[in-house]
């Protein structure tokens, strides 16, 4: 095989082996690993490596990407056993000659390295990720001081890459668990001083598969590519719920926590 150097990068430093998990739903085959030899140039990321494979070695390989700069959160995958954004991981920085690339766990696979993120978006939607107010048409701006903004600002950095759900051991065993992303976003909106939807979100957050299901393994925060620290958000949310333990559940709206039972035993 002739090595083709990519334009815009330096000299070829070495050749590494990509062991990529392949799965195609069209052929009912079981997932299998395939190996590709990729010449690595200085500055090449895992995504560049995958695109090299797609361009020169195997056109049928599928991966999802968009911005190539860690903003869109499309290219999350498991690289050498840990969730990482392919576009932000330098091949040479890994320091390995064999790079194992798997699709993110705990999601259905669409094809090869493309996970189906509908579960992530569904859970995100459940916590009502927008400012909830009583009035339908506001007459003026909702005011907020810089200090009030700091109370939730870090959680606004979430890019919905879904890597926290892949790393979370609770999510690995509980299909209905809301997941670190949704819970952290729940905290983000509840701690926003303009938002009045605390009681409305309680049904979902304070449920059997909600905030109490987290056992603080911290894996979500370890893998977050934007440093959002969802584990912190979840624990602070728990603190908030404990402090407001006597707040009456209004059971308002249609969103309900799965199999949630109230004190009277009626779901």
């Amino acid at each position: 095989m002739q090595e083709i150097a990519l334009k815009g990068f330096g000299e070829v430093v070495k050749t590494v082996t990509f062991r990529v998990k392949r799965y195609s739903p069209e052929n009912a085959d079981m997932p299998r690993y395939m190996e590709y030899k990729v010449p690595v140039q200085r500055g090449m990321t895992i995504l560049d490596g995958i695109l090299y494979i797609k361009e020169h070695l195997d056109h049928s390989l599928s991966a999802r990407y968009s911005c190539r700069m860690g903003i869109c959160g499309s290219c999350g995958m498991i690289i050498n056993g840990k969730e990482k954004l392919a576009c932000q991981t330098q091949i040479l920085e890994l320091g390995k000659d064999l790079i194992k690339v798997d699709p993110m766990g705990n999601y259905e696979i669409v094809k090869d390295l493309v996970p189906d993120l509908s579960k992530l978006f569904r859970n995100h939607q459940k916590v009502k990720p927008y400012v909830l107010r009583e009035e339908e048409s506001p007459t003026s701006e909702y005011l907020q001081t810089p200090e009030q903004r700091e109370e939730y600002a870090m959680f606004t950095d979430c890019i919905l890459c879904g890597m926290c759900l892949s790393a979370c051991p609770t999510n690995a065993a509980d299909e209905l668990y809301l997941g670190p992303q949704a819970l952290a976003q729940g905290f983000r909106y509840i701690s926003d001083n303009r938002d009045l939807g605390f009681e409305e979100r309680l049904n979902v957050l304070d449920s059997k598969h909600g905030v109490w299901r987290c056992h603080f393994s911290g894996a979500c925060s370890e893998v977050c590519p934007k440093g959002v620290d969802p584990a912190l958000g979840i624990q602070l949310l728990r603190q908030l719920l404990t402090e407001n333990i006597f707040v009456k559940h209004k059971q308002k709206g249609t969103t309900r926590g799965p199999e949630r039972k109230s004190a009277s035993g009626v779901s």
Partner: peptide, 15 residues
């Protein structure tokens, strides 16, 4: 810790 501004290289302070 209280919520903070994440700074590169992101080291989660809760852990």
């Amino acid at each position: 810790p209280k919520p903070y501004r994440p700074e590169y290289p992101y080291k989660p302070r809760s852990l």
